[in-house]
Design a protein around this nucleic acid. Structure first.
Length: 887
RNA sequence: GGGCGUAUAGCUCAGUUGGUUAGAGCGCCACGUUGACAUCGUGGAGGUCAUAAGUUCGAGUCUUAUUACGCCCACCA
């Protein structure tokens, strides 16, 4: 393609479509066990099968894709395992809602078999959405390995794990206090309960003593559970009440008397010091109930309505309606002492969005304590590292106080628990039992009970497979900190228990994406941008680049679509740099190396500078990526491309392009060499445009892909490195500073930008004079100068007025403007500089005359301070001599 | 109640093990379309680094306390 065909602005849509299908259809994403190479693998955090792509997924999957593409270029055999999660409660609710809406039938109308059939149909129809959307982002997953947590293989893994843990005594069934969601009508694990601080009421009720000798005042936030009260507790050391222990009170609105018991749980400091005990509806009261052998009376049904135990007046009432009626009745009977305002934490169901109900119920549990031990050790010993590291603390805190995991759910969509009952018999096995009369457990397993096996179930476990031998343990995991308990911790436990090996070495916790105002992105707020719209508008590369660019380290991201302009503009800048190069003709045949130019000392200082900067950037980026500092790497390459490469290097090269001949050939070749390196450095972040440009420029043959090009190594590895790179960088950048000073002078004297003028430079020393003279062509070009004279003398003008000048490290630059000089302005400028210099000299001298500084600071620092003072004094002398000339 | 995080330019954020004059992007102002790019270029304005004390020759950086905001955990009935 010729330069004429390259549009002025980069148009991502067609390019992205073209390359993605090229990569996929040519099998470039595939990872296969390959003993010749080192393995690198990631398992995707499986999105909910019902889900659609959100900005959270974009961030998460972009990071994973960067890691994958980078490692591929580093020569690893890479495999990114994709798939989706069946998301039990969420999916069941979703399909149920859909059925209600379209067919006006509910789950229960259909029955278990038919309903599950419908969910599968639904999954088949809509389930692939997010997977298709990930392709738009450029995700280089090995799609042939896509799995679903309810695939037959993964289901078998789930059953095997259940059976093994059961046989080991780690899984048990029992009647315990669990969190009940009245909307989903299922038990939940502790992690699925979200506590919100709420403004509530603290009701003080009088419970009359049965013998009529008075009453006790109990305080509660949950009056509706009073029908389940089976005691009132006081602290045995509380002299106000201790004499009452053993007597009884009458439970209002019922015909029951309940005992007064002594228990440490009653805190004399809190409330009235008397606590009503409702063992069937409160986790603490449950414990108290066990200690005192109390009766457990459940008064709520599965939908949190009062049952017959509450008496005919209350039966069938919703819990909150019942509360109102109870208050009314108690008040009527003069038993309501007072009502206080109170802020307290109320547990909500994560999915149902209503307060959960602590209930006594028969459920399946996993004992976690033993499973946690090796998982704690793995992180403590550093075999698994968290980034940022502070999450280890959160992890330890949870793991060390881990509680049994309630794994049964009273829903239909999920892995049905492999337990069968016949009379008093229980059978647990991977396959159904032989014989007549067995009935399978109705409950299914918590979704996370399949997710925690993901890193190896996705590779075919429990069968032995080459994938597991090669790719397990996986390398890195990228996920959100919100699922550290749900998923990360449990995967570590499962890996240690079932594979005998940790599932991954590094866990990178992503930031959480918020809107500009810092609010969580949510559908209901309408502040959740559709990533596909963003991709249509800005391009996938732009979105990927921008979101990493703006992601603060270890903090939440404040996102807005406008911020994608950063990436779009950057892609366009890169595009145009290439377009410009194409306008100069075909790329150099020997663009792959510049070894001879380096060895023979033929590089111009600008070229040496560019290559040295590029080298430093490649080294830094690799280091940043190694440490999961994506943000740092992206900022480094942005700066390199825009400022170093485009603003300075290309601009400086233009004059050599125009010169023709050997100078032109060399300039083009060095530019090509640099550009090819830049494209490769950028590929992990912007896969589409880099692939497109690599081909348009001709850096790759048609059959090649940048995906498998080598990530740039430091020059010293295979080529000659730039000699004295540090000094080249310092001198060149001092020159650039001088040029900027010259441009500022032009502008402050209102010289038209297009006008070519004369400059004089007074070099700071011999070395700088020589350096500047060598680069005269580009110097003139960059200053848009007609001529530049360089010496170590001030500018001598015809009249006595002198010329405007600016002093920088490399020397002074003069703008010879006969008769036009604004003497007062020049004087003011110089005086300001003089004052500043004097200030710095004063503090510098003070420091150097401080004996303790000389004694205690490292010699290197002292030397630098001395050299700095010398510099300052030199500069001051130059300023003062210029000032003297102004007279 | 416990733990964690954050506080730097109008906004969003960088700032490596303490070491010369604290940076970038966006926004703002001025000027500019000579063929890479107006999704651009050149230049400019803009900061007592939340507050207080301390450690140190030296603190944006380390320590302590305070304030504000955010998050997580917890049986505040």
């Amino acid at each position: 393609m010729s330069a004429q065909e390259m549009p002025k602005a980069y148009e991502p849509a067609e390019v992205e479509k073209k390359w993605y299908s090229y990569w996929e259809s040519n099998g470039l994403f595939k990872g296969r066990p390959n003993p010749e190479k080192k393995p690198y693998s990631i398992v995707i955090p499986p999105p909910n099968v019902t889900g659609i792509l959100t900005m959270g997924h974009v961030l998460n999957n972009t990071l994973q894709d960067i890691l994958m593409r980078w490692h591929r270029m580093e020569g690893y055999e890479c495999c990114w395992f994709p798939g989706t999660d069946h998301a039990g409660i969420a999916t069941e609710a979703r399909v149920n809602k859909e059925l209600m809406k379209t067919e006006h039938i509910s789950r229960d109308d259909l029955g278990r078999e038919a309903f599950i059939e419908r969910v599968w149909e639904w999954k088949k129809k809509y389930g692939g959405t997010i997977i298709r959307q990930l392709r738009r982002l450029g995700a280089s997953c090995d799609w042939d390995r896509e799995r679903f947590t309810m695939d037959e293989g993964l289901s078998r893994a789930v059953r095997k794990v259940f059976v093994d843990l059961y046989n080991k005594g780690y899984i048990y069934r029992g009647r315990r206090m669990i969190n009940w969601c009245p909307v989903s009508k299922t038990a939940l694990s502790d992690e699925e309960v979200i506590y919100k601080d709420e403004q509530g009421k603290f009701y003080h009720f009088r419970y009359p003593l049965t013998d009529g000798s008075g009453h006790l005042v109990v305080a509660t936030t949950r009056p509706e559970t009073m029908f389940g009260d089976t005691a009132v507790a006081v602290n045995p050391n509380d002299t106000r009440y201790s004499h009452l222990i053993g007597r009884t009170v009458h439970l209002p609105l019922t015909d029951r008397d309940i005992p007064i018991i002594g228990d440490e749980h009653a805190d004399p400091e809190k409330g009235t010091g008397c606590v009503k005990i409702t063992p069937a509806h409160d986790p603490i009261d449950f414990q108290v109930g066990l200690r005192h052998n109390l009766e457990f009376i459940s008064v709520l049904d599965k939908t949190a309505h009062l049952n017959a135990k509450a008496g005919p007046e209350f039966e069938g009432l919703d819990r909150f309606e019942a509360r109102k009626l109870i208050l009314k009745k108690m008040e009527e009977q003069g038993l309501l002492e007072k009502v206080e305002d109170l802020t307290h934490a109320v547990g909500y169901s994560e999915r149902g969005g209503v307060p959960i109900e602590p209930m006594l119920s028969e459920q399946w549990f996993v004992k976690m304590e033993e499973l946690a031990k090796p998982a704690i050790a793995a992180v403590r010993k550093g075999r698994i590292k968290f980034y940022p590291d502070r999450w280890t603390k959160t992890y330890f805190h949870w793991m060390e106080g881990i509680k049994d995991w309630c794994i049964s759910r009273q829903i239909w969509w999920g892995h049905r628990i492999p337990a069968w009952y016949r009379g008093d018999e229980t059978y647990v096995g991977v396959e159904p039992p032989q014989g007549e009369g067995w009935v399978q457990e109705e409950d299914v397993l918590d979704t996370w009970f399949s997710s925690w096996l993901w890193p190896f179930s996705i590779m075919g476990w429990p069968d032995k497979t080459p994938e597991q031998d090669y790719f397990y343990p996986t390398s890195d995991l990228v996920t959100g900190p919100d699922i550290i308990f749900f998923w990360v911790a449990r995967m570590i436990m499962a890996g240690c228990e079932f594979k005998g090996e940790i599932p991954f070495s590094n866990v990178y916790f992503t930031s959480i994406i918020r809107d500009e105002l810092g609010r969580k992105l949510s559908k209901s707020l309408g502040n959740s941008p559709d990533p596909l719209d963003v991709i249509d508008r800005y391009g996938a590369d732009a979105l990927r680049f921008s979101i990493i660019y703006i992601a603060p380290v270890g903090m939440d991201i404040k996102y807005s679509n406008e911020k994608c302009e950063i990436g779009r503009n950057f892609a366009n800048k890169l595009w145009n740099a290439c377009r410009f190069r194409r306008m100069q003709g075909e790329i150099s045949p020997n663009f792959r190396e510049v070894d001879d130019l380096v060895r023979n000392g033929r590089l111009t200082s600008d070229e040496a500078w560019m290559l040295a900067k590029l080298d430093a950037c490649a080294i830094d980026m690799k280091k940043s990526l190694d440490e999961f500092k994506f943000h740092q790497a992206v900022h480094d390459i942005y700066e390199l491309v825009w400022s170093s490469f485009c603003d300075w290097f290309i601009e400086a090269s233009k004059v050599r392009f125009a010169a023709g001949g050997e100078a032109r050939e060399q300039a083009l070749r060095v530019l090509d060499y640099a550009l090819w390196k830049l494209l490769r450095l950028l590929h992990p972040f912007m896969p589409f445009i880099t692939e497109e440009l690599a081909h348009q420029m001709g850096f790759l043959a048609e059959s090649e892909s940048i995906m498998y090009a080598e990530f740039p190594l430091p020059m010293s590895v295979r080529e000659a490195a730039i000699p004295d790179a540090e000094s080249v960088i310092a001198k060149t950048e001092a020159k650039f500073e001088l040029i900027s000073a010259g441009r500022t002078l032009r502008i402050s004297y209102n010289i038209a930008p297009g006008k070519k003028i004369d400059f004089h430079i007074k070099a700071a020393n011999d070395a700088m004079e020589e350096f500047l003279k060598k680069g005269m062509d580009s110097l003139k070009w960059l200053l848009n100068a007609n001529s530049v004279t360089i010496s170590q003398e001030d500018y001598h003008c015809d009249d006595a007025s002198g010329a405007p000048s600016t002093l920088v490290a490399a020397g002074a630059i003069f703008l010879p403007l006969k008769g036009l000089i604004d003497v007062e302005a020049e004087k003011a400028k110089l005086k300001k500089q003089q004052t500043e210099l004097l200030g710095w000299i004063r503090s510098s001298e003070a420091k150097l005359s401080n004996e303790r500084f000389l004694a205690k600071a490292p010699p290197k620092v002292v030397e630098e301070a001395k050299a700095y003072l010398v510099d300052l004094k030199e500069k001051l002398a130059r300023v003062e001599s210029a000032l003297a000339q102004m007279k």
